[in-house]
């Protein structure tokens, strides 16, 4: 296996007036070249912080500890300026909100060319040609006209495709896609997903997809990472996970989502309670207060990460074998 990204005992905490907020806790993750990984979990489970912190996009109130290794280089030892050299060509990110991640007062063309000129040192003419090519790639009708437009003149779906074009402009080895299709209609979502799949094949791009859409996870990823309260609680190959969920949390999360193949008028399953307070971690399993199978042992002792022969990892004393 050709290893591209390695996280070891990676934690992120924020200094807040109420104390340290532990957003990501002791994450171990290895991503192979060309792999596509889905990260799922509720809001507040640390998915976005994990992907942003890996890229080094954290405010000064954040403290990151542990190892981030990219292509064998430990990024966690580098200064901020040195990490910058990896942005665009090494790692790139599609941000969640297309409406706010573009600069509203700069034309689409100049925002697209910025990375090409600064990171790849392309002459302006060449960057222009490449930018038009990228817009065609993401199926923007009339790319020459689009280059001269401001973000406000485009629809949400078009803007999201511009954000994708910017992210893939320098053909990154690793692409983080943070809920890239959440704001889009299903028809546009399907086009965007197809585009990402094409790019992965063409340039053997590795992708880390943060989402809560199970359909997207099922169709686009090789492996799924389930996060809860800042920890990885389950990891498995996508097919394995859908057929055999070990964590009660994974099952509860998946079953609370309405699906097209269920008959109408059924009551939805809910996960009662809420995420634990991230400023004061509990001693036992973080999901225990909401888990219907929890025992005293779960509440007192932290379950270790168990790895099965097939590489299925989970953090539970009493694994189930749930499926969708």
């Amino acid at each position: 296996m050709n290893q591209l990204l390695k996280l070891a005992d990676f934690s992120v905490s924020f200094a807040t007036p109420r104390g340290n907020l532990h957003a990501v806790r002791g994450v171990d993750l290895v991503v192979a070249k060309g792999e596509s990984i889905g990260i799922v979990g509720e809001s507040g489970s640390g998915k976005t912080v994990l992907s942003r912190a890996t890229m080094g996009l954290m405010p000064s109130t954040a403290t990151c500890t542990g190892l981030v290794e990219f292509n064998g280089v430990p990024l966690s030892n580098l200064s901020r300026a040195e990490v910058r050299n990896y942005w665009g060509t090494g790692m790139a990110m599609i941000f969640q909100d297309p409406l706010t991640s573009l600069n509203p007062v700069r034309r689409i063309g100049s925002q697209l060319m910025e990375g090409l000129i600064v990171r790849l040192g392309m002459p302006k003419k060449q960057a222009q040609a490449r930018a038009v090519e990228l817009l065609e790639r993401v199926r923007i009708p009339d790319p020459y006209a689009a280059m001269k437009k401001y973000p406000g003149e485009l629809s949400g779906g078009m803007r999201q495709r511009i954000v994708i074009a910017i992210a893939i402009a320098c053909t990154p080895e690793l692409l983080f896609a943070d809920e890239p299709t959440t704001a889009l209609d299903v028809t546009v979502q399907a086009q965007v997903l197809e585009l990402l799949a094409e790019l992965r094949q063409e340039i053997n791009m590795t992708m880390i997809l943060v989402t809560h859409d199970l359909g997207v996870v099922a169709g686009q990823t090789d492996r799924v990472v389930v996060m809860y309260a800042g920890e990885i609680v389950e990891t498995a190959a996508t097919k394995d996970l859908f057929a055999n969920m070990k964590m009660p949390y994974t099952e509860a999360l998946m079953k609370s989502i309405p699906r097209l193949d269920q008959s109408s008028g059924q009551r939805l399953r809910v996960i009662t309670g809420r995420l634990p307070d991230p400023t004061s971690p509990e001693p036992g399993c973080s999901f225990a207060p909401r888990c219907e199978y929890a025992t005293d042992k779960c509440r007192a002792e932290k379950p270790p990460l168990v790895t099965t022969q097939t590489g299925h990892q989970y953090r539970c004393f009493f694994p189930i074998g749930g499926s969708l």
């Binding site: 979502q189 399907a190 997903l193 996870v217 099922a218 996508t238 097919k239 969708l324």
Partner: peptide
């Protein structure tokens, strides 16, 4: 048809 199906065994 555009809604992704949450089943990895089914193609897109």
């Amino acid at each position: 048809a555009a809604v992704p199906i949450p089943n990895p065994e089914v193609g897109v």
